[in-house]
Design a binder for these strands. Structure first.
Length: 528
RNA sequence: GUCCCGGUAGCUCAGCAGGAUAGAGCAUCGGAUUCCUAAUCCGAAGGUCGUGGGUUCGAAUCCCGCCCGGGACACCA
């Protein structure tokens, strides 16, 4: 709808047009303050310009009215236009809000180390990435969801070591000296028990078996992570293993050497990342010849760019923000366009429990498991909670609140609206299809308003995707549900003279809720 | 010290490519059910938009300084 209005405006105004929704809907469906900015160059008062423009657009069919008020131009869409759009949408649910964006996007997210189950912090990135992909696909983008597995490096050894020590202590009942760094938490003990079953408890006798434990455990952990994700409805298209990429390091290093991107100092190899705005140069190969973690990421991004996508989106934890500059620098050195890489930082999630905030750390073992929260509040509520806040701001919530199953949980509120519509149709003994072709003519102002809001979904999801701000979708659904509930309370549908018209109106609302929720990975409930 | 995020109603947060009287949810108080699910709705109360300057016809929104809170600043991943 918005696009249509903009198209018409562009026919007569040769300037970027700001089109907004008036705060007070009685002004109209859309409005533009364009007259203010034109005032200067035309040397006329905004009021006069607005008046003139309003007259030009009055003839357009899609408008019922165009008015100039205090310099603003307000547009009211015609009933006929809204009705035609609604009918089309009802008959083409799959296409409602869909678009034909032609871009191939690689979306990398979660990528949690396979050293433990997913915690609530991972869940945020996971849910955002998944919803982004669903919405993007609906808009026509081709999106590949990728998980980068950090299965090389010290943390994998630590995982094996932790299990080894846990096995010694809990199973062999030996006195165990724990190092400063190791993985804590119940799951390590569980793994030790499982390992004892699988390998026999001799595995805990000799340190030499640690690598064996590591390799075994990391596979176990990936299985666990995949299962955790699946429970929230998230699946990946591709998994890339850091370990498997490692062999390509000599080749990548050679390219960097040729590009003059690295130099040798103190027996190490440094990346000249300062050349592209990093604070300091970074070590990519240590004195003993082992590549650093950054080297792994350089290979990974080299491989990514070689695969030739139009755009790359990484969702990282906010603690990686300092990392962006060096990775982008490496990409430039490798001859690729680093601007194609976009990083979404998912900020910290603070959980409150009993009013006490507490930090989450996988290392320390006092983290909240994503799977636990899912069990408490359900995958839908979990998804909705994360999607209703911007990714890059700190999020704080109380676990106890999430456990509540009442109207303070917006996902119930929205579902209830959807369920109510279904219930009315049931009571009326009608199907959605029965009212598709009912003409919405001479409907009351508040009905037209609900119709308009119901039809806003397409522009909302497009805006949300382009800005990478998915909370716009959840906000919209909350508003839509609220408008619906209000209307529902004020009007009796069944038996009224306008029964069919209102049923059609409600089915458009339900459609929007259903499609909107689906794009967030939540299935709308028909009955509650 | 440098960098990132934030500071808007009692709480959690929208709004921020400048624009019409600053919004929502929760909490508080008051009300609505002979009728399609009250898991709902209506109303009231509640704000120097951290602070000081600047730009502008117009600033919560843009620019600069300062204050406060959180986080990041590895040859760990």
């Amino acid at each position: 709808m918005r696009k249509k209005v903009l198209q018409i405006l562009a026919k007569h105004i040769d300037k970027p047009i700001v089109l907004e929704k008036p705060k007070d809907r009685s002004f109209g469906h859309y409005a533009t303050p364009i007259a203010f900015s034109l005032a200067k160059e035309l040397r006329k008062s905004p009021m006069i310009i607005a008046d003139e423009l309003a007259n030009i657009f009055k003839g357009e069919e899609i408008f019922e009215n165009v008015e100039a008020v205090k310099g603003y131009i307000n547009f009211k869409l015609s009933e006929n236009f809204l009705d035609e759009y609604a009918t089309w949408a009802l008959k083409n649910e799959e296409k409602f809000g869909a678009d034909f964006k032609d871009e191939n996007i690689l979306l990398e997210f979660v990528s949690a180390n396979p050293t433990g189950p997913l915690h609530i912090g991972h869940a945020r990135g996971a849910v955002i990435g998944d919803a982004l992909s669903r919405i993007g696909k609906h808009l026509g983008y081709t999106i590949t969801k990728e998980y980068y597995i950090n299965d090389a490096g010290n943390q994998i050894y630590l995982l094996g070591l932790s299990i080894y020590l846990a096995g010694r202590e809990k199973i062999l009942k030996l006195e165990t000296k724990w190092p400063q760094e190791y993985y804590r938490g119940e799951y390590i003990i569980e793994l030790a028990k499982e390992a004892a079953n699988y390998f026999g408890s001799e595995i805990f006798v000799d340190e030499a078996f640690i690598p064996k434990l590591s390799t075994w455990a990391k596979e176990k952990m990936m299985e666990l992570i995949k299962a955790d994700l699946k429970r929230v409805g998230i699946e990946f298209d591709t998994f890339i293993s850091e370990k498997e990429l490692q062999e390509k390091w000599p080749k990548v290093l050679e390219i960097l050497e040729k590009a003059g991107a690295v130099y040798h100092k103190d027996g190490k190899v440094w990346l000249k990342s300062t050349q592209f705005g990093d604070e300091k140069d970074r070590v990519v190969v240590r004195e003993d010849g082992r590549p650093t973690y950054l080297a792994g990421d350089i290979i990974y991004h080299y491989e990514k760019f070689k695969r030739g996508y139009d755009r790359y989106i990484n969702i990282w934890g906010a603690d990686h923000h300092g990392y962006i500059a060096r990775v982008k620098a490496a990409i430039r050195f490798l001859g690729y366009d680093a601007d194609k890489l976009e990083i979404i930082l998912a900020q910290m999630v603070s959980l409150l429990k009993g009013g006490e905030p507490y930090k989450m750390s996988k290392r320390a073992g006092n983290f909240i498991l994503m799977s636990d929260v899912v069990e408490d509040i359900g995958a839908d509520a979990l998804r909705f909670m994360f999607l209703s806040k911007k990714a890059d701001t700190h999020l704080e919530f109380d676990v106890d609140l999430l456990k509540k199953e009442d109207s303070s949980n917006p996902v119930y509120y929205i579902n209830y609206a959807h369920a109510r519509v279904n219930s009315i149709f049931e009571k009326a003994g009608k199907n959605f299809e029965d009212v598709y072709d009912v003409e919405l003519k001479d409907i009351k102002e508040d009905a037209k308003n609900l119709l308009f809001i119901s039809l806003l979904l397409p522009e909302v999801i497009e805006d949300a995707f382009e800005k990478r701000e998915l909370q716009k979708v959840t906000d919209y659904l909350k508003v839509l549900a609220s408008e619906f509930h209000r209307f529902y309370n004020e009007h009796k549908v069944i038996g009224s003279q306008e029964e069919d018209k209102l049923l059609k109106l409600f089915s458009v609302t339900a459609l929007s809720i259903r499609v909107g929720l689906r794009l967030l990975g939540i299935e709308a409930k028909k009955r509650m």
